[in-house]
Structures are given as structure tokens and as C-alpha cells.
Design a protein around this nucleic acid. Structure first.
Lengths: 284, 284
DNA sequence: TCGACTTTGTGCGCGCCTTCACAAGCGCCT
DNA sequence: AGGCGCTTGTGAAGGCGCGCACAAAGTCGA
């Protein structure tokens, strides 16, 4: 999921990827989280207490963003059709997604924006401010630390860590980079449960282990490496190089199609150009 | 986009080609082939010429990375079991994925690493060096431009663009940032077909339009915005804030589960701690 | 008050993806 | 040569997500 984006498959596909299960998207791509793999014999297969499908969860952030924009514009209600168009999905899918949260719509009218924003935020756990730690402050790590998009949505950066003594002590985005030796203490003290990995691939597993040992149970990694984690830890992977390679695959195919279309033989008669604009949704 | 998940658009038609056996992923409701004793009502379905499922494509980059590492270690062959473990997927899935590329495995032995690397590379289109342009050189854009993981895998950065006059002219990763006005000319001159968007959300659609107008047909965007593109253009979206929000959702659920497990009542009986290590796959 | 219109919520069918399980194929040892 | 064991390739089944299409439910106008 890259990624996953998952989707990301996410991404599926595209995109970001989930640990167990896909979105992907096209994106993602992407793998699933949680207790996926196990085919419990006959027993109870508690998918999720609230039974919100993973695919739906992956779209909630998008809906939330769109809805937030509507709130700022003072829009009181939206129809599923409008909201779906703005979010780049089909209206039926959107209605089904929202129905998993319980009914906040009014037939004949649409959805009330404010209550919906509140509900999705609560469902995503954004009513509390999650604090994350970033491990690895190379180019990407520094960019992430400085990225405003996190704080903007209830995700604050608690601390930064790096294994390189030359980086430790530097100030990035108002925080001083700390040595890995302090990681466990800070994570425990601050109650951090989500970590962001931006280390080189070779260091990713080690850093991940340290995060998990300290109590982190959710990891977002940018390292192009497969991570092993204990059951109960979620890993979402964003793999930039993979995303580009997937695009390259499609470009190559398009090029091949173009050649084939130009050539006379067989299946040249294809509907080639349809000028309609397509809304493209979120990965994965 | 992964994803997951699944995502971006799918390319229209495909060419005919007779796959011997029987496997037939009936996909797009497009065009008909002619002959072949089809009693079908009207149109026929064209199987994808090479019929590689999107989910499989999303995993190929991961396999490729693992295989490349094996090549460097001088490993001549691998079994599906070993390769799957290293890639974080199930062995059956891996075998099925590879079977879509044609058989490069030998029963009783495994897969020959070198030919497999060559084949996957060719399939992904990595035999040619794709050049990309990056639009938007804020924190993230600069990090991407400096990121070594691209060039490493046949993806080169051709040029950098930004709309901000204060950024234009600066040098990033050995390249001078150019104004948007030069985008079309450069894209055409260099034959670029893949663009990376790292602009603020508000500027994303405009920049995307410019890319598409110039001839780009594959876009990787990091902007938290829904993009509209014409048919035939692939978009993969990587949304950092969404990824974290999805992790937050799962963390919240785990916390709720923990509380429930602690409480006596009904459904507390879950297998909570299973110390087994899970391999966590990529994407999507 | 009643009817026409709008929009939600969802039952249903379809196709993709994943997983299981096993027959077929290949190398090696005897 | 022949049999044995290992590994691939794949048929079949199950799960999940998606989109259609429609009944239910609520609003608005007369």
C-alpha cells in the first residue's frame, strides 16, 4: 500500500498496503491489518466488533476531509450523490459505507454534515489526539516531521529518533532528534502507540522491533522492506518505488495497446478514446 | 493503492490472444472478438491479453526486490515457500502470481532466480528507464527528489517544477527547479509519461491537468485531494494523513477490545495473545 | 390531508481475490 | 530403471466488495 495505496493494495492498491488483506489499491494496494490470516476452524471469527469493513475504513478519511471542507463552507446537508462525487466514489458505495456507521441520513433530504463529521471523527478515533514518533530522519523523515497535514487532523508528532549520532541533536520542525536509546522511555512516558518508520530498508526491522518492544502497536513504514511483527500489531506500508513501478507497468501496457491498435490485424477495433472525466478515488 | 486498494482506473480493452488452457478472468464488458464458437448473446468479453490481475501487479515489485537481494547473495534457486516467506505472502498466492507470468518454476526444485528477475523486470517495464517529473517542491517534493530509491530501480527524475517563484531556480538534488510554464515543453521533449504530484491539495488538480495536457498518462499524487482525470490516465494516490487515521482507527478498536476482554461479560473469550510472528506483506 | 417527488438504506447477483488441497512433473537415490 | 519425495501449477470453494435497482421513508406543494 503502498501502497497499500492497497491501495494498495491499494492502492490497492495502490497504494498503501495493509498488512493482511488488500485495498489496494489499486492501490493499493495493499494488505490487511489485524488478525487476518488465520482461518479459524469453526470458531467465532470476530471480524470487528463494530463490523466496519476494512474497505470502508480506508475511505472514511476521504469522506471526512470532504465533509470538513463542506462544514467550512457552511453547507448544512449533502446528498449521497454530491458527497460521493466530491469523494470520487459511487453514491451507492458511499451510502453503504455510511450505513455501517449507523444511519445519519434523512431520506428525501440527505446527510447532515456536522453530525456526520462528528461521528466519523469519533469512529476513527480522532477525538483524542494521537501522538506519533518518527524514527529515521533522512530526507523523508525530515519531510514528514515538517509536514503540516498530520497535526491538522489530530495526529501530533511526539518525538523524533535516529540511530545516526550525526543526526541526533539536530533540530527538525521544532523538535530535537533523540538517540534510539531513549525511544522506549519516551514511548512509554508519552503513551505513544503509533510509530512512523522512515529509516533505510536495512535498519527497518530493527527499528520496528524497538518500537514494538516499547509498546507501539501501529506502524506506518516507508522503508522498502518486509517487516515481521507480532500478532496484534498493525503495519501499513507505503512504498514509493513500488508505486512508480506499478505505474510503469500500466504505461508499458498502454504503449503496447497503442501499437496494437495502430496495427491492422485482429482486435484493433477498440473503443479507444472516451473523453469523459473520471473521478479517481483514494488508493489503494 | 494502494492500495488497495484498489483503485485507479482500469484500462479499457485488451487484445485477444489465446491462452491455451482454460483460465479466464472474465473482466471488461467491452468488445467482442469475432470467431470462436460463441453462442453469446451479443458482445463478447475480451480477456486481457496478458491477463495479469491488478492485485498481482501490485506484488510484483515486492517479489522483484526480494529476488534482487537473492541474486546479490548468489542464490541460484528458491522455492515458492522461501520466496513467499521473504516477501510476506502465502506460498499459494505467490505461485499463482508467478503463474500469470508464465512458468518459470521447475517442479521439485523451485524457481531459478536470475531468469525470474529478468522476466519480472521486463513485465514491469523496467528494461527501459522511465523518467518522471516532480511537481511541487515543498518539504515532501524535495525529499522525493533526493530519495535514492527511485534511480535505484530504473526510475529517473527528469525535471522539477514549482509554481512558487521563490522556489523556482533553486537547486534540489542536482536539478534546478523550473517554472510551471516550462512543464509542457520539457515533458514532450523528454518523452515523460509519469508525473509525481507533491503540491498542496488546492493546487493539485491544476497541476494534474497541466501534466495530463502535456502528455503524462500516469500520476502518483501525494496531495490529499480527489483528482479528476480523463479516461486512460492512471492515478495512484498516497495519502499520509489517511494512513495514520486508519491506524488510529485500529488502535482505538484494539483499546476497546482490551477493555472488553478485561470485563467479564459475554464475548470476552478471544485468543488475545498469540506470540507468533507474522510476516507483513507489501501493498496493498 | 393527500399525492408526487426526492433520497436513503439494502437485498441481490456478480466477479475478483485468496486459500485449500491435490494431481502432475521433475530430480535424485537406489 | 524404477520408485520416492519434493515442489509447482491449478481446479474448486469461500469471502469480500461493488454496483444495480428498488422499496421504504421523509419532504414539499396543493
Amino acid at each position: 500500500m503502498s501502497t497499500s495505496r492497497h491501495d494498495t493494495g491499494r492502492p490497492p492498491g495502490h497504494a498503501p498496503e495493509r498488512a493482511s488483506g488488500s485495498a489496494r489499491p489499486v492501490g493499493d494496494p495493499l494488505v490487511a491489518t489485524g488478525p487476518a490470516g488465520d482461518p479459524g476452524p469453526a470458531a467465532e471469527r470476530l471480524i470487528s466488533e463494530r463490523g466496519i469493513p476494512e474497505a470502508t475504513v480506508g475511505r472514511l478519511p476521504v469522506y471526512l476531509r470532504v465533509l470538513t471542507a463542506l462544514v467550512e463552507r457552511g453547507v448544512p446537508t449533502v446528498s449521497s450523490e454530491e458527497l460521493a462525487a466530491a469523494a470520487g466514489v459511487g453514491s451507492a458505495k458511499l451510502r453503504k459505507d455510511l450505513s455501517h456507521l449507523g444511519s445519519y441520513g434523512v431520506r428525501g433530504v440527505g446527510y447532515e454534515v456536522s453530525p456526520l463529521v462528528a461521528h466519523i471523527s469519533r469512529e476513527l478515533g480522532l477525538t483524542q489526539a494521537w501522538r506519533v514518533v518518527i524514527v529515521g530522519l533522512g530526507n523523508l523523515g525530515r519531510a514528514l516531521a515538517s509536514y503540516g497535514g498530520f497535526a491538522e487532523r489530530g495526529m501530533g508528532v511526539a518525538a523524533l529518533f535516529d540511530a545516526d549520532p550525526a543526526v541526533v541533536g539536530r533540530e527538525v520542525a521544532g523538535l530535537v532528534v533523540r538517540p534510539m536509546s531513549e525511544l522506549a522511555a519516551v514511548v512509554r512516558a508519552e503513551g505513544v502507540v503509533i510509530g512512523v518508520l522512515a529509516t533505510p530498508a536495512a535498519a527497518a526491522q530493527g527499528a520496528c522491533d524497538e518500537l514494538v518492544a516499547a509498546g507501539v502497536t501501529g506502524v506506518l513504514t516507508f522503508a522498502p522492506a518486509v517487516l515481521s511483527v507480532p500478532e496484534g500489531v498493525d503495519v501499513r506500508k507505503v512504498d514509493l518505488a513500488s508505486e512508480l513501478q506499478i505505474l510503469a507497468f500500466h504505461e508499458q501496457r498502454k504503449a503496447a495497446d497503442a501499437v496494437r491498435a495502430a496495427a491492422p490485424s485482429g482486435g484493433g477495433a477498440r473503443a479507444v478514446a472516451r473523453p469523459a472525466r473520471r473521478r479517481v478515488g483514494a488508493a489503494r
